[in-house]
Design a protein around this nucleic acid. Structure first.
Lengths: 126, 126
DNA sequence: CCGCATCCGCGAGGATACTG
DNA sequence: CAGTATCCTCGCGGATGCGG
């Protein structure tokens, strides 16, 4: 073994911070949005339905900070800022894509399971 | 195309609820914990460091509801409840594992990126 | 031992107005 | 246009006590 063993389950483990990155809805959507290429701030805002400027900036900054997203500011007026994935970010995007594909493929299963669950609950309440 | 096209980005899309399931720290950890086999409630509680009974139950119920986890109650005293992944849950667990592997493999990269970011911030504040 | 019900604190995150 | 600053809500999630 040439790598340290991390344990996500421990709250003090560095890998736990990665978990917190992954388990963040806006971060997830931002990465997926950037998967298709470089985007301006306002484009992101339009793509991520319902995101507030605050959360968008906060999310993009966190991703930049962690080396997953590159932020480029053009010194022009009106301002123009573009975001794109780093190579590391693209790796992550690929993994997240497979999760999304799985999720979308199984939406019917999950909806069915929910219906079944509700039905049983109602039956047991007889 | 024999499947409906879903769009996670839209808040009204059913696939968005899947996203909310995935972007949930405790759900993520619970699935990973169950990947290695069936576990009792108290075992889960020990494995998921820092989880409160309320959140643990809530999380497991949500997973059961969505058909990812099977919950078995033994009618004995003292009570005994065991949880295990359904086939669907195991599919998800596999995908999540690859995310975890990626995350743990890149912890050093991410920590380095953070350090670099902080350093630049400090430099620009000169 | 499992886990539901209740209460509550707190901070993530939304809305809005404003500036470089 | 791309944020920042501010305020404020609301619901996540922790704590506790009880019931099966």
């Amino acid at each position: 073994m040439d790598h340290i063993s991390y344990d996500m389950f421990r709250r003090t483990c560095p890998s736990h911070t990665v978990l917190e990155l992954l388990s963040n809805k806006w971060a997830y959507l931002a990465v997926m949005a950037l998967k298709r290429g470089r985007h301006r701030y306002s484009e992101m805002q339009r793509r991520l339905e319902g995101v507030s400027p605050k959360m968008l900036t906060q999310t993009l900054r966190a991703l930049e900070r962690d080396g997953l997203v590159l932020r480029e500011v053009y010194p022009v007026v009106p301002p123009r800022v573009e975001y794109e994935l780093t190579p590391l970010g693209e790796e992550l995007a690929a993994l997240m894509s497979s999760l999304r594909d799985w999720g979308e493929a199984h939406v019917p299963d999950i909806l069915a399971a929910r219906a079944r669950f509700e039905a049983e609950k109602a039956a047991s309440a007889t």
